[in-house]
Simulated scan of single mutants.
Amino acid sequence: MNNVTSIVVLIAFILGIMLLFNLYTRMLSKIQQNSIRRRLEKGKVNDQQLIKLCNAADKGRNRKFMAIFMYGIFFKSFLNMQEDIYRLYKAEIDKRGLTY
């Protein structure tokens, strides 16, 4: 019975760590998006930089191997983060009337 209890505690501990990592990646994503949003609103990104950043975000959102390598089983968090960043840049490009 002692071994079963130890295994259950270990599984609960691992799940707890996974939950914390998931919360951390979500928080990191929100911080990054807010930072990008503020830079765009303040006009700190010129048109050429915006197009380059949008192209980089477009490439990044399709890199599943990199997502798996960096985030493991939470690779969908990375892909969602890249997709949200791409949407921010794309919306700003549309707002400025640029093409890329």
Rank of each mutant, 00 (worst) to 15 (best):
G60V: 03
M1D: 06
L53V: 04
F75V: 10
A12I: 15
L19I: 13
D84Y: 04
C54L: 10
K90F: 05
K52W: 01
K95C: 03
M66T: 15
L40K: 02
G60R: 02
I11L: 08
Y24H: 13
Q32K: 14
D58S: 15
F65C: 08
I85P: 00
R37C: 06
S35P: 01
N3A: 10
Q32C: 03
D84N: 12
N62G: 07
Q32D: 07
E83S: 11
R39Y: 00
D58L: 15
A91Q: 13
D94P: 01
M27P: 01
D47Y: 08
L88M: 11
L23R: 11
K59E: 08
M70E: 08
A57F: 01
R37M: 10
K90H: 04
M18F: 07
V8D: 06
R63W: 03
M18V: 09
F78T: 00
V8Y: 07
Q82T: 02
R39G: 04
N3P: 11
F21Q: 13
F21E: 12
I85W: 00
L15T: 15
L20K: 12
T5F: 03
S77P: 01
L15I: 15
L40N: 01
I11H: 06
I31C: 05
Q33F: 08
K59F: 02
K44R: 05
G16L: 11
L28A: 14
S29K: 14
G72R: 08
T25K: 08
C54A: 15
L28C: 09
F78A: 05
L19A: 11
F78H: 04
Y24M: 05
F75M: 09
D84G: 05
N3L: 10
M70S: 12
I14P: 04
F75L: 06
V8S: 07
F65M: 08
R38T: 15
L19M: 13
A67L: 05
M27Q: 13
M1I: 07
R96H: 12
